[in-house]
């Protein structure tokens, strides 16, 4: 019966007086939650798109560079410190500089999402938790 009614009649019953008010209300609620859901999805998508491009590209570049440099610096510093303490100069510096280089590459690859994060190893079951990486 509700289907036969014209748009105007529906509007009249919107006050909640008519026998079809509940149906109307339910339909409007459904429409509202649907559009809310769509809005939410749209927001997420715009957010993700923003992450992928523009300013965030600059951020990614900065991150990759600094991760690599930090690895090398930390390696060199540790090696130098070890040499100072143990008097093994220059072998600590050489060895740890090389290791630091490797750690820097590891950092950079990890920052780029090419290698699994170390915490994935703590996972009991390793079959494909979704990657957190962009």
């Amino acid at each position: 019966m509700a289907d036969d009614r014209s748009e105007e009649e529906r509007k009249k019953t919107e006050g909640g007086q008519g026998p079809f008010a509940d149906v109307d209300l339910a339909r409007r609620m459904a429409a509202l939650s649907r559009s809310l859901e769509e809005g939410k999805r749209g927001r997420d998508e715009t957010a993700r798109r923003f992450e992928g491009k523009g300013g965030s590209g600059y951020a990614a570049a900065m991150r990759l560079a600094s991760e690599f440099v930090a690895g090398v610096l930390v390696g060199a510093a540790l090696g130098w410190g070890l040499d100072e303490v143990a008097g093994t100069s220059p072998w600590g510096l050489i060895g740890f500089l090389l290791l630091g280089f490797a750690a820097g590459v590891l950092n950079a690859l990890r920052a780029a999402g090419k290698i699994a994060e170390p915490d994935d190893r703590l996972a009991k079951n390793k079959d494909g938790g979704p990657s957190r990486h962009e």
Partner: peptide, 25 residues
């Protein structure tokens, strides 16, 4: 041993890169 050393260095370098990036920028 080498892998563990590299992983530890990688972990230790995190605060370094974190702090240097912000400060240098």
């Amino acid at each position: 041993p080498m892998i563990v050393a590299i992983e530890i260095l990688s972990f230790v370098s995190r605060p370094v890169s974190l702090s240097i990036r912000l400060f240098a920028n």
